[in-house]
Design a binder for these strands. Structure first.
Lengths: 326, 326
DNA sequence: CTGAAAGCGCTTACAG
DNA sequence: CTGAAAGCGCTTACAG
């Protein structure tokens, strides 16, 4: 495991350039090929990747910057990226930033030092510093989950998802609606979903109140208490599954029966939404497929092939038990 | 970003060895220090890690082999490892094997090629090939979640957890018990938990039936149907939270009220267990802390400091709503 | 087909 | 404190 190409060469009685050629598929006579092959097997020789990369001045590594490891969306996306990258002979390197902005920027520079050939960026917001870092590092970047005019990106169709959800609950007869969203700093989740939702309601005779809460389930539980105090909606449309779960928990604490007394919907399509009782009506995004697609796109970018500026992923609306017919 | 140490040296008008010395904290006069600093800043110079590692013949990278990315236990452990490693100036590299044995072995060799200074192995089973790979790669390894005589390991106290769970449900008055376990190939989950549980029941007057199912929620749902057909337990003790959720789902489908008609418990302490209704009685393992501890241990191993062969992590039993008093 | 040599970007004794 | 030189393990023209 600690032999070098020179060792192998001298044991096999050839020049190291010949071994290198053997390794890289250059022309080698059948005879020397066998000799080298044998020596390599015997000594379990594996080339030192650093030396290789130093020469090549690039790697077949794609760095992925991820805000958190413990979310369904993140892990599914990562799995997709990893699987697809493996298919095309690339490796994935993960850098978790724990939702810390500084670390995100740092991660980009670190990846550049490690000479990754491309970076997939899962970020909730793209700031000036991101752009600067990307420019300085001269490395292809694919933004996933958000959109930005200066960057190639891959997004879920949040607007349409919001729209479809609106149509859906309207069809179910709901007219007193609470929409429980998140900060507008998050364009996809905070703005797009809500905008799509609003749009679907245009011209209908319903009444909507908009609320904002945090991403955590506990935040949602607290906010739900407020909502229920001041307003009596027939349904709470939540911007994420997590928030919806918080609403459900808050309701169960208050002995409010879902969906009889109150309907709830989410967005995301997390596995749990099927498990909880009642099963949650939600929009399921295709995270794993998005990951695969992201991998394909970044590799194209690395190879300087053309890709569309924005790749849009589809979704599925699951009509389940948490919404009652009014 | 693409300048080399030579560039910096010539621009600053010094030798590259001086720049290197500056970079590595060697003695440099105040004057040259300023010059170099200025040039580096201006050109955004960052040393090439490959060249560095090539010289150093090692890195400050710890490779982590993980069977899956989409489990609560995995992600929490990874987060813990990452956080702690960052504190001690190491980096984490993740290799996901999607529970594919071949890939696990491959990952070890790959990490070795990349000259990681240590490997943290989250594996359900340790086979001969693992040991061979580890031996050949001459790299420190820490096994997490399982135990093996030839390896340093960090484990959760599954035996004691099983034992405590047994005591707990006995105290609650349960006497007709079903234990829904998993394959004994998984020593921690399949054997230890069950053994501890069995032990706690010794001398008590209860009746227990042991069943086996897969790790997936859907497997558990199917098995639960069988159990309920042939046996009428007052409680089903499940080897994992996932399985317990499957049981709960199966029960809700059959209109069986939990905990009134049937009690359920899990192991793991996943976040969802608090969300579902009724909240699940379970043992919460300290995954994140385990990750941190694992990071500390592997670094000690890398530095050739002493650590105990087996590090045992503690747990907390959460007494919640899914278990009824009999 | 094969080998000697140069060079990738760094670090580390060794002189001065 | 500073610089010239050698070397880490590989690859790639260039000759032969």
């Amino acid at each position: 495991m600690n032999k070098t190409i020179s060792d192998i060469a001298s044991i096999a009685g050839v020049a190291k350039s010949t071994v290198s050629r053997y390794l890289n598929g250059g022309s080698v006579s059948e005879n020397t090929r066998r000799k080298i092959e044998h020596v390599i097997k015997e000594h379990h020789y594996v080339p030192n990747t650093f030396a290789q990369s130093l020469k090549a001045r690039k790697t077949n590594i794609i760095g992925t910057v991820v805000p958190r490891l413990d979310s369904f969306a993140s892990s599914q996306t990562l799995i997709g990226i990893d699987e697809e990258l493996r298919n095309v002979n690339y490796h994935m390197l993960i850098s978790n930033t724990s939702q810390d902005f500084e670390r995100e920027i740092e991660a980009i520079y670190n990846f550049a030092r490690q000479k990754v050939s491309g970076i997939i960026l899962l970020a909730a917001q793209v700031k000036e510093e991101h752009l600067t870092a990307i420019k300085e590092c001269v490395v292809p970047v694919l933004l996933v989950g958000q959109q930005h005019p200066d960057l190639h990106s891959l997004i879920h169709d949040d607007y349409k998802a919001g729209y479809m959800m609106g149509r859906h609950i309207l069809e179910k007869g709901h007219r007193r609606i609470a929409y429980l969203g998140v900060t507008e700093k998050d364009i996809s989740v905070g703005v797009r979903r809500k905008e799509g939702f609003k749009k679907s309601l245009e011209g209908s005779s319903c009444y909507v109140q908009y609320y904002e809460t945090g991403f955590k389930m506990t935040d949602a539980m607290v906010t739900t208490a407020h909502i229920l105090d001041e307003y009596d909606p027939s349904i709470i449309v939540c911007a994420t599954d997590n928030i919806a779960l918080g609403v459900m928990k808050a309701a169960s604490v208050k002995q409010i029966d879902i969906p009889r007394d109150l309907s709830v919907t989410g967005f995301g399509g997390y596995d749990v939404t099927e498990i909880v009782h009642p099963a949650l009506t939600t929009v399921q995004f295709q995270y794993k497929e998005a990951g695969k697609r992201a991998a394909q796109n970044i590799v194209r970018l690395v190879r300087e092939e053309e890709i569309e500026d924005v790749t849009m992923m589809d979704f599925v609306l699951h009509d389940r038990e948490s919404v009652d017919k009014q």
